[in-house]
């Protein structure tokens, strides 16, 4: 049995035929589309390493069946830099902030952390409150213990993206939706 679906992946429309309904978005990206940025840390929605944006919203791709997401628009870590309004290969503000604030060590959870942060900022619930950022980022485990840098990075990116004189950042958040 095969299941044809279409997905927009990092801005590119793709028609795919799933030979198996069991395929999750995570395994589709990693094993079939060679987009290995999203990581499999637990495969059960317990670590957040597989976080991607689906229609602009952060979700655990390990628990999302691909066939059920026919028609969805997906952003992975590989496609995030391209969404920077500065254009070219420039890092997204969240990516840049993670480097600047050392929001990672081994880097394995990092793509999930970054997409979770992009989603969190876009959800618009935290403002500049570090406690709300910590709570909002608690679905992404970091075993190296880079939480302090992660929180700093998200706050810095949030400030950069919502500053009144940086309209492109706002635009970006809207685009992601």
């Amino acid at each position: 049995m095969s299941f044809p679906i279409t997905l927009t992946v990092n801005g590119t429309a793709r028609s795919l035929v799933l030979e198996d309904a069991r395929v999750t978005l995570l395994d589709l990206l990693r094993e079939r589309l060679d987009l290995t940025g999203a990581k499999k840390g637990c495969d059960r929605g317990q670590c957040g390493a597989c976080t991607i944006l689906v229609d602009g919203v952060r979700v655990n791709s390990c628990l999302a069946l691909a066939v059920s997401h026919d028609g969805a628009s997906i952003t992975t870590i590989e496609g995030l830099a391209g969404t920077n309004p500065a254009g070219g290969d420039a890092l997204h503000p969240v990516q840049a902030a993670f480097v600047e604030h050392d929001g990672f060590q081994c880097g394995f959870c990092t793509p999930g952390q970054i997409l979770s942060a992009v989603g969190l900022i876009q959800e618009g619930q935290t403002g500049g409150d570090p406690e709300r950022v910590r709570e909002g980022m608690s679905g992404n485990l970091c075993r190296c213990g880079a939480y302090a840098g992660i929180t700093e990075a998200v706050l810095a990116a949030h400030a950069a993206m919502t500053a009144p004189d940086v309209l492109p950042g706002r635009q970006l958040a809207e685009d992601a939706a």
């Binding site: 976080t51 979700v59 628990l63 999302a64 679905g139």
Partner: peptide, 9 residues
């Protein structure tokens, strides 16, 4: 409950 990601789904 759960996490931001799970609540979104």
């Amino acid at each position: 409950g759960a996490s931001g990601q799970l609540r979104n789904a």
